[in-house]
Structures are given as C-alpha cells and as structure tokens.
Amino acid sequence: MKKFQLGEFEEVVLLVIGILQGEAYGFAIKLEIEKRLSRTVSMGALHTALLRLEEKGYAKSFAGEQTMERAGRPRRYFEITALGKKAWEYTRASREELWKALPGNLWNVGKA
C-alpha cells in the first residue's frame, strides 16, 4: 500500500525542515543537512525536492523578508503541514515494522 510517497532525500529534507522549526529556508536547510549528515547537497537537488514536497502537500512555504546579505533577494521559508507530519509518521512506522521483522541473528552479525 503506497499511501505516502516520500523519497529518501525528500524525507531528509522534510526532517530538517522540522528540525529548523520556522527557520527553514533554502540555504539554512542545505547547511543543516551538510552539517548533520556530512554530505554535499546541490542547490538543484534541494530546490527540486522542496518543490516536490510542496506539490505533494507535505510542506508549505511563505515569502520572508529581504535581507542585505542576500543582495535584496527574499527568503522563502518552509514549514511542515499536517499531511507532512502524517507522511513522516507513516514512513517512520513502516520502517520500525521492517526493523522488528528482521531476524535477531542477522542483527548480531551486523553488530559484530
């Protein structure tokens, strides 16, 4: 049952939006991901993901203030929607389920 479509990178972005709590705009999200996951994120990938999230209704955005450090360009802040939260939960729940179903010995092998 594919109730909620959420790609791996989209999931990361959605999580980071949640972490940043109202301070989530493009560059901040990028920095956060790079800091926490130590992986490089391209602007293209990030903004495509943001656009997709918005289209799917998991996130919404609003225009922010124009600031000097951005040469007068506005920020666009993202926040998570109720649907987004559901998708979150769903993804997390389905993962847990899968984890639980994993045989114990395999788990141990993995640990060793």
């Binding site: 560059f27 903004h47 951005r70």
Partner: peptide, 16 residues
Amino acid sequence: RIRDHIEGDLLEQYFH
C-alpha cells in the same frame, strides 16, 4: 516565480 529566492540562496551561500 521561484527564481528570486533561489538566487537569494545562491548569493547567501556565495558570500557566506
């Protein structure tokens, strides 16, 4: 419609 804030991000990163 999306270009202004993306450009903002680019510039912010650049100057950062």
